[in-house]
């Protein structure tokens, strides 16, 4: 059992949903990332997803890509992410999940990466470019270290494959709402609620929906059918101005997150 498993057990028992913001590590520096995580927890978020900047992200839209470029432009190294999270983790009771490309994991060696991430304070990882076919080795290492490997299902995933992915996933299942890259959308695709509902009836694993979610309307639409919602680009965009004013950036992100959390409660 990881902290993520505990979290969803508690949420389900009380009929609540998870709200999971995404924040880019090191944009513009790790000290600020820590402050953001602290603020997100104070606001009542259930969990945070920490994006590990990667030089060639193909699943990410312009907002997150630009945040990765800024962080790497400031010479962010993997070890700095681990060090800062480890230093500050005592301040947070909510679980942290790493969103990290397999290119980075492979370079460290999967087991070394898992051990380092776990020691730093991460409970699991979302690896957007590791397909279920390529994941058995990583999966078994994650099981060995009681670390969640959260897999993704998308609108282009055929139903039988979605069930296979759910089977291989742990912690929760990441349901990608759109056929496309990360980034805010004004409209979410038709049939999304039905597709999530279909899968939810067939797996006991919690299902969280992400990609494109940015407004209270989205939250109200999707919360009932899922176990949680993930919001990334909309928050990262609020934090873009951090290098000129950290307080302003935190305030902007805080306002957005509060409005989304309020929608989750209703």
């Amino acid at each position: 059992m990881t902290a993520i498993d505990d979290l969803f057990a508690k949420l389900r028992a009380s009929g609540k949903k998870a709200f999971m913001p995404f924040v880019t590590a090191g944009d513009p520096n790790m000290a600020f990332t820590s402050k953001v995580i602290t603020r997100l927890q104070e606001l009542g978020c259930s969990m945070a997803e920490v994006g590990f900047p990667y030089s060639d992200p193909i699943a990410d839209g312009p907002v997150i890509q630009a945040s990765y470029t800024r962080a790497l432009g400031n010479k962010l190294k993997l070890q700095q992410i681990f060090d800062q999270i480890q230093t500050d983790k005592a301040n947070w009771s909510m679980p942290l999940v790493a969103m990290v490309s397999y290119a980075i994991i492979h370079r460290q060696g999967p087991e070394s990466f898992i051990m380092a991430a776990k020691q730093a304070g991460f409970c699991g990882a979302i690896v957007p470019d590791l397909l279920v076919e390529e994941s058995p080795k990583m999966s078994s290492l994650c099981r060995k270290h009681d670390f969640n490997l959260i897999q993704l299902v998308t609108p282009t995933t055929p139903p039988d494959r979605a069930l296979r992915i759910a089977e291989a996933s742990s912690g929760f299942l990441y349901f990608v709402s759109v056929t496309g890259i990360t980034g805010e959308r004004t409209q979410l695709p038709e049939g999304l609620v039905d597709r999530v509902g279909w899968l939810k009836a067939r797996t006991s694993l919690p299902i969280c929906i992400g990609f494109g979610i940015s407004t209270p309307e989205h939250v109200r639409l999707l919360a009932p059918v899922s176990d949680g919602l993930i919001v990334g680009s909309a928050i990262v965009r609020c934090l873009e101005s951090a290098s000129s004013s950290e307080e302003q950036a935190l305030q902007n992100a805080g306002q957005l997150v509060s409005s989304l959390l309020a929608a989750l409660e209703t």
Binding site: L130, E133, E134, T154, T156, V176
Partner: peptide, 20 residues
């Protein structure tokens, strides 16, 4: 069948592209 030339190759892409 999995696209491997020895150890090399394979498929490291987002799930969205798998069906195509």
């Amino acid at each position: 069948a999995s696209g491997r030339f020895g150890d090399f190759g394979g498929r490291y892409v987002p799930e969205t592209l798998t069906r195509a």
